[in-house]
Design a protein around this nucleic acid. Sequence first.
DNA 1: CGTTGTGTTGATATTAATCAACAAGTGTGG
DNA 2: CCACACTTGTTGATTAATATCAACACAACG
Lengths: 251, 251
Amino acid sequence: MTLLRARPLVVEKPQLAQPCASCDARGISVCSAIEDPDLARLAALAHTLTVAPGSSFIEEGDPAEHFYNITAGTTKLFKALPDGRRQITGFAGPGHFLGLAVSSTYAFTAEAVEPTRVCRFSRTKLRGLLADFPALERRLLDTAANELVLAQEQMLLLGRKTARERMASFLVSRAEGEHLRPIDCRHHAAPETVTLPMTRSDIADYLGLTIETVSRTLTRLRGEKLIDIPVPSRIVLRNPAGLQSLAAGLN
Amino acid sequence: MTLLRARPLVVEKPQLAQPCASCDARGISVCSAIEDPDLARLAALAHTLTVAPGSSFIEEGDPAEHFYNITAGTTKLFKALPDGRRQITGFAGPGHFLGLAVSSTYAFTAEAVEPTRVCRFSRTKLRGLLADFPALERRLLDTAANELVLAQEQMLLLGRKTARERMASFLVSRAEGEHLRPIDCRHHAAPETVTLPMTRSDIADYLGLTIETVSRTLTRLRGEKLIDIPVPSRIVLRNPAGLQSLAAGLN
DNA sequence: CGTTGTGTTGATATTAATCAACAAGTGTGG
DNA sequence: CCACACTTGTTGATTAATATCAACACAACG
């Protein structure tokens, strides 16, 4: 299944060059993605927030008054049960829209994993703008529809894949994800290297496993020469094809 | 979390009264939900298909040329792994839109569980119509956004809930779902009775369990007087509050 | 009246969770 | 600068939840 992926849409007020939050290459503007006049209009309505790792800017259950676009960094989106069990439903990077759902309260918490910048819009102002710019609405619809596809993929992973298959799926989709970032925000690592800004605990909560199982599974994949782990936050895919077929449920 | 749920949108060409496919009350039109002029326009573009249980009208991997709206019956949407493991990502009833995603191929299979009627649109014609009727596009966006919320809920279930909690969640959300159907398509059962048109195997594939675990879990819930099972396809919620707190991860 | 599909129940196996210990890295205060 | 706590990650031993394998009950159907 190949998706026709749109280039991530990063909304931010034009400003001077910023350091890339994911690496530390300086003098590169994350704003170069703004080229569409609709986007400039949208950006004019936004407030830019900076969120430190560990801080959340959306809390599950809060009144859903705003709408967000991630412009830099990485955030985790999760839902929690009263006893503390958590499920991370996704990691959102530059270009991601949050808070689309038409509900009176947010259905999830969004917390920064890396230093993150987000653009915040009032929901009512957004509605007005969408009325004027149907192209933007279409863009949002496409985005939401494709996220739905990813969510279904994740349900297959959570409901039916083994720990090894989950880990392989995660690494492969992370590796593919590197190519989806806005050009000026890409990591400057070799393509077969995956950077994991999140902790093992986050990975576990994303894959429906425990941290011990995540750790053991990575160790085992290394033993099978499918990956290397030079440092815990960096995984080298030594055998991408092997990982891909593992992720697909073959083997 | 309370969602502001829109009334399901059922698109179908005006026609004479039809039997309700979910129950067998006759002389009730499933078309009464058409009242908006946009909808009439939309309906004029549609072809209505009748799908027998076990037949699929969307196959994973097929070119995604169409877009569908369920008008009657129930379908299951699923993804499969090459060795046959399946994950049902949702059951779609009257009002559901399928095939929104902007991809060249479908990401899932849709198969009828009950006798089902669907309206089919060409994707390109739909695009044209959406340009003329922004209200419809907004409607689709709201629908997609809310499905995303449900998908996140399901990820929490699949990744973190126990078999009992999954079963309770399923029953509770099914019971709530009864109230979401178009008025003229509601089942005429007592509110605390849930009708399950799908098999145990479908329930298992939806909850990420095996049929044996589904069966045992239901038996256990009956033993605890939380439910009754007069016939396998009908579950009476004897203690809805207890089930709800179980579903929420308390207890 | 056998056959098939569906659902239930029992015995056993297996995966991943839990409980526990420890290593390595980071920051703090003395 | 170094002890110290604290966080994160890894590994080992054991347990527990659910899957698997197997048998059987029951209804629908030809």
